[in-house]
Design a protein around this nucleic acid. Sequence first.
DNA 1: GCATGAGTACTTTTT
DNA 2: GTACTCATGC
Length: 717
Amino acid sequence: MSNDRILEGLNPEQREAVLHTEGPLLILAGAGSGKTRVLTHRLAWLVREHGVSPTSLLAITFTNKAAEEMRRRLQDLVGGASRAMWISTFHAACARMLRRDAERLGYQKNFAVYDEEDQRRLVLRLMRDNEMDVKRYPPRAVRSRISLAKNELVSWEDYRQRARDDFEAVVGEVYRLYQETMARNNAMDFDDLLVNALALLELFPSLLEEYQERFRYISVDEYQDTNRAQYRWVNLLAERRRNLCVVGDDDQSIYSWRGADLRNILDFERDYPDARIIRLERNYRSTRVILDAAHGVVRGIRGRKPKKLWTDREGGEPIRFFQADSEYQEALYVAEEINGLTARGYRLSDIAVFYRINAQSRPFEEVMLRLGIPYRIVGGFRFYERKEVKDVLAYLRVLANPADDVSLLRVVNVPRRGIGETTIGHLQAHAALQGITLWEALLRAEEVAPLGAGARRRLSEFARLMSELRDAADELALPELMKEVQERSGYLEELRRERTLEAEGRLENLEELLRVADEFQQTRPEEGLQGFLEQVSLLSDIDYYDQEEGAVTLMTLHNAKGLEFPVVFMVGMLDGVFPHSRSVVEGREDEERRLCYVGITRARDLLYLTCSAQRSQYGLTDYCAPSPYVKEIPEELLERVGAAEVEERAVRLESERLARMAEGFQVGDRVLHRVFGTGVVREITVSSAGPEMAIEFPELGTKRFLLAFAPLTPLKD
DNA sequence: GCATGAGTACTTTTT
DNA sequence: GTACTCATGC
C-alpha cells in the first residue's frame, strides 16, 4: 500500500493534523468531524512515512471498544505493526505499568482490582467496625467522595486537613482506613490504578525516563474528559519529547461528576505555548437541521469556546417532537415509528433509543418485547455485576490473591455453610490481634479461642476447600479451574436444588462465564487467571456492544458518546430527568446541556424527541413538564406530533398484530384450548375487537373465541 | 445461624 | 416497585 493512501480523502484540516507529527498538537474536533480517522491515520503516517517504531506509540482512548476499533483500522493501514502499539484506555495502560512494577510501591504483582461494589462493601465494613454512623454518612456518598479525591490527587492526609465539616472529617478518616486496608489486601480500586501508576513515574525517575524514551509519540482521545490524575500521568510521560497530540471537544465534556476537568483541554495552550491548534468543524454526519438543533442547546453556555459545525447536507427532515399522555403511549409511538422506518428501508441496527437514566428503559423494553421488535440494551445491570458471577469471580480472586479479604468475606458463607456473622467476627478479631491476614487466620482456625467446636470445624472445612482449590489453581487451566470452583464450592448444587426460574437464569449466567473463560484461554492463554480477572474488571458495558446486530439499540446518553446512528430517539425528555434535578442542584446544568448536545449529534438523518405528561417512579405516578431543552431548539426545526394520530395508529398496529396471529390458523385446523381441550376451527371472522374464531368441540359443541385472549395452540397432525 | 417479614430509602450518568 | 436493613422467632 502506498503512503499516499493514508492521506487520501482527508480534508485540508484533517490532513494538516495527520502531517503535524512533531511537537504539541491540540485538535478541537467537533462531533462527527472524523477525529478517529485523523487519529488512526496520524499514527499510520508516523509509522509508514517517518519510520517510527510502533513500540514508540502510545494512544489513549476512552473505552476498550474504541481502542479495539482503532487497532482494527490501523491493522488495515499498517498491518501487523499495529500489534506492537500501546492502544488502550488510561486504566488499562496504568494497570499494565503496575503489573510490571507495583512491587516498587509495596504491592505484589497479583494485586486485585476492586470495583465499585467491592469498594462500597469495604467502606461499609470499615465504618461499622469503627462505630461510625452509616445512616448519617451513607457509605455510597463516602465512597464517591474518596473516589473523587483520588481523581483530583488529594491524599487522605490532605483531605483530612482540609475537611470543612463533620461529613468531610468522617470521609477523611474512612479514606485513611480504606487506603490502609487496600494496601493490606494487596488491592487497588479503579482510581488507585491511575494514582499508583502516576506514583511510579513520580517516585522512580529511572522508570519515568524509560517510559519517556519509549513513548516518543503520545495521543489522547476525549481529552476534555480527563481528570487530574490522568492529566498528570500523560503530561509527565510527554514532558521529554513533547510529542503530545490531544483530541477533544469542550462541548462534549460530560464526565465532571467523575472528576473530569474541562480545564485540562481549555488550558492546553497555556501548558504548551508552542502548540499547534487545529479545528475540525466540518461535520460529515448529520443534516443541517440536526446540527442547528444541537447548537441551540449549547449556544448559551458561558465560557464555551465559540464554534459552529458546518455541513453540506443542507436541510433535512424536521425533528419530530411527541408528548404522549403516558409512558406506555410514548413507548408505543417509538415502536410504531420503528416499524414505519423499517418499512422505509432502515435496518433495526440503524436505530437507537437514548435516555438519561437506565431506569427509563423499562416501558420501551416492554413494548418492543410485546410487538416483537428485536432490541439490545447497553448498560444497566451488567453481566459482571450479577451476584452469581461476582461470587464465582470472588472465589477466583481469593485464589489469585489470598490477601483480598473483601472477596474472602464475600464467599466465606456463599453458598451457606453455617459460617455466620459471629464466627466471622471472631475470626476477624483474631486476625487483627495476631497481625495476620484473614486468610491466614482461616487456615489456623483451630487457634481461635472463642469459637465453638462446630464453628471451628466448619471453618476448617472451608479452609481445606480453599487450599485445595489453590493447589488446583497452579495445575489447571482457567476454564477447568472455574469449573472446579463452581462445583466444589457447592454453588452449582445450591442453585440446582432451588428449581426456580431465577436459579435457572443464574445457572445460565455461570455457564456463560465459563464460556468467557474458555474464550480467554483460547485467545490469551499466557495471561492466566491474573489477566482474566483484570480484563473482567476493566471492561465496560459499551465494550460488548456490536452495532451490526439486527436490533434496535437502547442505552443511556453517556454510553452513546462516540457512536452514530441514522435514526435517534431521545426519549423521556422531561424536566427533572433531563436535566436531572440532582445535576441542577449540584450546579452542573451546563453539563446536562452538553449531554443533550452529545445525544442530538449522534443522529445522521432523523431525530425524534419524546416525553410523556406523567412519569412513574418508586411506584408512584406524577405529572411532569417537558424538558426545557426542547424549547431551545428553534421552533421551525420542530414538527409536533399529535397524540390522537398516535392512538389511531396504535389501534391499527394492534389489529394488524392480531391479524398476523390469525394467520397461524385455518378453517379445518385442529386446535388445543387450554380449558376445553381439542377442537376444530369452523370459521374465522374479524370484528372490531380483532379476529374471532368459531371452534367446534366434540362434547361441548361450537364456541366463539377472541383470538387475542383465548389460550389456543394449533395442533399439527 | 438463619428464615421471615416489616420498614426504609432509593436511582443519575461509569472507567 | 425493589433492594436492602433490621428485628423477631425457631
